[in-house]
């Protein structure tokens, strides 16, 4: 049975697993963005806390994903929860780093003139600094999304959702003709999702960035 026939036969599976995969990554990216941007905003002006947060979120990335999923299994059981938690942890670093870099790259003269006009700390952050840092921040979120799309597949070892199911089923049947098709289908699904997400981010970035700084 060649690969295309295989895809045609499993098309329902492909769509359903694709939606799950996209959802689990989407939720995790959203959580990582909220937590990561918050951490970045809280620490970008203070050297010690900033270094601490960057080191901690960086360290999370070095934990092998297999190990992390299994460690979280004990706390959160099987299914979506451990996967979302693990992916959120993995996703923090690029977002925190880009938030800090973006906020620190805002022209000090712009911030000073905002202060001089009487914008409060909060107004400066929301109306001036974050909008100007936004193109850099959203690039961090995009990188995180691409990284998490790959890692999400491994979440199948704790019964997580998504294309991991096809890849791991293939792994169990190594040596049979269907094994290669399964792994290929799972990989292809992840790649297609990556392309779709990238297009979405391109559009969002374009729509949410002022013409004055594009």
């Amino acid at each position: 049975m060649d690969f295309l026939e295989f895809l045609a036969k499993r098309s329902d599976d492909m769509v359903e697993l694709g939606l799950e995969h996209a959802a689990v990554v989407g939720i995790s990216v959203l959580l990582a963005a909220v937590i990561g941007v918050t951490l970045g905003v809280l620490t970008y002006q203070r050297q010690r806390p900033r270094e601490l947060v960057l080191a901690a979120t960086g360290a999370m990335l070095t934990v092998p994903s297999f190990a992390l999923f299994i460690l979280l299994l004990g706390v959160f059981g099987l299914g979506w929860t451990p996967v979302v938690v693990a992916l959120t942890m993995y996703g923090l670093m690029p977002i925190v780093r880009n938030t800090v870099a973006g906020l620190n790259s805002v022209d000090p003269a712009v911030v000073e003139s905002a202060r001089g006009m009487g914008l409060t700390r909060w107004q400066r952050l929301l109306r001036i600094e974050l909008p100007l840092a936004w193109p850099v921040i959203i690039t961090g979120i995009r990188v995180t999304t691409l990284v998490l799309l790959g890692i999400a597949a491994i979440g199948y070892i704790v019964n997580g959702p998504g294309y991991g199911e096809l890849i791991f089923t293939g792994l169990h049947r190594v040596g049979t003709p269907v094994a290669v098709n399964l792994v290929l289908a799972g990989t292809l699904g992840v790649i297609i999702l990556a392309i779709v997400y990238d297009l979405v981010f391109y559009a969002v970035r374009h729509l949410t960035t002022s013409r004055g700084v594009r």
Partner: peptide
């Protein structure tokens, strides 16, 4: 308040 570096808000 006017400063040498001007500091207009570039996104506005």
């Amino acid at each position: 308040y006017v400063i040498q570096q001007i500091g207009l808000f570039p996104h506005m």
